[in-house]
């Protein structure tokens, strides 16, 4: 009995070459799943590459970190070489929200609104320790970390962070953008580390 000749058009990955599927016999109209996956990954990679080098940032600048943000964005530590040189001051036109500087409870609803108004895909960078965990303002006026409000992708600590730190954070953000990975909010406050859950923070003054 003759062995069954595999039909090239059938969805049978084992009969297709593992690598470089399109190079060996791509016939329009008869595309396999493996070929489709290869194409989508390539397209995704291209999209990721394009996205990561054209960051339209929304600089939500409040305080001292704004000065270092200015320094990173301009002369000496130019952020334009990452394609991020063009801030967009409208949330509808931006894809990365740089939260720069302390967020007070008075400002928190504004931050939430700006974040909600941004279109997908969007990423958030917490620039400065005040946005990461609240900094040394453990008081009645300050939000202890913006990840209590919105999901954060990259945390750049420092008070204020040096421009080199910021660029390091930006490169990490670019990796995330490349792979299309986005942060989600922790389900509730219990996801935070144990020592940050109590009503009173450990002794940070003195």
């Amino acid at each position: 009995m003759k062995p069954a000749t595999p039909d090239p058009g059938k969805l049978n990955p084992s009969t297709r070459p593992a690598v470089g599927g399109a190079r060996s016999g791509f016939r329009p109209g008869r595309v396999s799943v493996a070929e489709l996956n290869w194409m989508t990954t390539r397209v995704d990679a291209a999209l990721g590459w394009a996205r990561k080098f054209s960051i339209f940032q929304y600089p939500f600048v409040t305080a001292c970190c704004g000065m270092e943000y200015m320094a990173t964005a301009t002369s000496h530590y130019d952020v334009d070489r990452f394609g991020a040189g063009f801030p967009r001051f409208s949330p509808r036109q931006a894809d990365v929200l740089f939260v720069v500087g302390t967020i007070s409870h008075k400002l928190a609803p504004v931050l939430k609104r700006v974040y909600d108004q941004m279109a997908e895909p969007k990423w958030v960078v917490a620039f400065g320790v005040c946005t990461c965990t609240g900094g040394f303002y453990d008081n009645y006026a300050t939000v202890m970390g913006i990840d209590t409000l919105i999901p954060v992708d990259v945390y750049i600590p420092g008070c204020p962070p040096r421009p080199e730190n910021v660029l390091d954070g930006l490169i990490k953000l670019q990796e995330k953008i490349q792979h299309g990975v986005r942060a989600t909010l922790p389900p509730d406050a219990s996801a935070r580390p144990a020592e940050l859950q109590g009503a009173h923070r450990p002794d940070t003054h003195l």
């Binding site: 001292c64 008081n139 006026a141």
Partner: peptide, 30 residues
């Protein structure tokens, strides 16, 4: 105003006089 009220004065009550200096930096951070 008040969106950047960070409670410096209240925090200054919590330590010796030299502890206020980091808060003083951030008053006019330029």
């Amino acid at each position: 105003i008040g969106y950047l009220h960070r409670g410096f004065e209240k925090m200054s009550e919590l330590g010796p006089y030299n502890n206020v200096i980091p808060y003083a930096d951030r008053l006019n951070y330029v």
